[in-house]
């Protein structure tokens, strides 16, 4: 009996049930990125507001969601919320957990991005009598965003893989479908090797998108582009 059944591996690689899971993984990731970034932005602004009434809850949120495992958060949301009369589907629970968790990381990325924009930029905006909104949207945000792209990309890469934890509450993404296939024939390595390939394809595609984003947002910056330097540190 061969140690690794290559034909079975190839079969799993083109298994339509598994490929369907890839779509779910992508959907979960995209939704969590969008939701997490929006919520994270709000939390970061609360934390930077200088108003204790807003800053303290934001700090607590970040502390809590970064300080506990996503796995536990998912299980608590799925099993715990019904006790309070909130009934969410499996997919809704997973999305909520991923968004809440991701937002805590995004909030710190957003905050550090804003902190890295020199104070002189805001002062120049004041001296030109720009409104607070104009300074935020046209001066600081675009510069902060450029600094956020590398760590955001890193976080999104992590999120792509973290969606596999949603399998424990039976969301049928790549991991869960691999588990189900595995239980049919017990070809453990063959199934998970196929799943591995899919994760690698997804993260590689994301690497390409991220490289494009970094060069796009770094275009007005001289040769010693900070985005490139951060990119170097990330690896």
């Amino acid at each position: 009996m061969p140690i690794f059944n290559f034909d079975a591996f190839v079969n799993y690689l083109f298994n339509s049930f598994l490929i369907g899971g890839v779509g779910v993984t992508i959907g979960l990731t995209v939704a969590a990125v969008i939701g997490g970034l929006c919520l994270g932005m709000i939390i970061a602004l609360m934390r930077m507001s200088g108003k204790p009434l807003l800053a303290f809850p934001a700090r607590f949120y970040i502390w809590f969601f970064r300080g506990t495992p996503l796995l536990i958060q998912l299980v608590v949301i799925y099993a715990g919320l019904p006790l309070f009369g909130i009934k969410l589907s499996v997919l809704q629970s997973a999305l909520l957990g991923l968004i809440l968790n991701e937002a805590s990381y995004m909030a710190e990325i957003v905050r550090t991005g804003f902190l890295a924009v020199p104070k002189g930029q805001t002062e120049a905006g004041w001296s030109l009598n720009l409104s607070r909104r104009t300074i935020f949207w046209r001066v600081t945000l675009p510069q902060a965003f450029r600094l956020m792209v590398p760590p955001l990309g890193n976080s999104i890469n992590g999120l792509l893989k973290a969606t596999s934890l949603a399998s424990v509450i039976s969301v049928e993404e790549i991991m869960r479908r691999s588990d189900l296939l595995m239980q049919e024939q017990f070809q453990v390595l063959e199934v998970y090797a196929a799943a591995t390939i899919y994760y690698l394809i997804l993260t590689s595609l994301w690497d390409i998108v991220q490289a494009r984003l970094e060069s796009h947002f770094g275009r007005s910056v001289p040769a010693a582009a900070s985005a490139k330097r951060l990119g170097f540190l990330r690896r």
């Binding site: 020199p118 002189g120 930029q121 002062e123 120049a124 001296s127 030109l128 009598n129 720009l130 409104s131 104009t134 046209r138 001066v139 675009p142 510069q143 450029r146 007005s220 910056v221």
Partner: peptide, 24 residues
């Protein structure tokens, strides 16, 4: 006018000069 210029690095020189007249 600041010691470190504080031009907006993500805008062209022209956009640096027009942002305040246009928005304010």
């Amino acid at each position: 006018v600041f010691q470190n210029f504080n031009l907006f690095p993500h805008m062209t020189i022209l956009d640096n000069c027009t942002i305040a007249p246009r928005t304010t």
